[in-house]
């Protein structure tokens, strides 16, 4: 397998694993959300890099541009980014509410709190 030629996929995989690991291993609710963000970003990179065309430029309708990247993945990922932002916002809002209710955002402390009552 030609590793340098597929370096974009390797970046995707590494980012994805970093994100995934953060979500699983961290007990801090905000860090989990950051992990989730990294995880999502890896997928954005996957899409964007898949639309690249060797030697192509940005897909802008202008004289002189004949060789351009596939615009569809860009559009799709624009939507996905919006979704990602919304998810992050909602997640953080929940964390704020959790902090109000429990006084902590550490998962194990919250669990202990729940078991006490």
């Amino acid at each position: 397998m030609e590793i340098p030629g597929l370096f974009n996929y390797w970046i995707v995989v590494v980012l994805m694993m970093i994100g995934f690991y953060t979500v699983i291993s961290r007990g801090n609710l905000v860090k989990k959300i950051i992990g989730l963000n990294i995880f999502q970003v890896s997928v954005f990179v996957l899409y964007i890099s898949m639309g690249a065309v060797a030697g192509g430029t940005a897909p802008i309708l202008a004289p002189g541009i004949e060789h351009y990247a596939n615009p569809l993945p860009h559009v799709l990922i624009l939507t996905a980014i919006v979704v990602g932002v919304a998810t992050t916002a909602l997640g953080l809002a929940l964390v704020v509410r959790i902090h109000e209710a429990y006084g902590t955002i550490e998962e194990d402390e919250i669990q202990a709190e729940d078991e006490r009552t």
Binding site: V43, L46, M50, G91, L94, A101
Partner: peptide
């Protein structure tokens, strides 16, 4: 309910992202 929603958010987003990868 807050923690339940948060956990669902994390797992649900992972699930949805997996679907996004699959579609991609």
């Amino acid at each position: 309910a807050l923690m339940a929603a948060y956990q669902y958010l994390i797992l649900g987003t992972i699930g949805a992202t997996f679907i996004l990868i699959g579609i991609g």
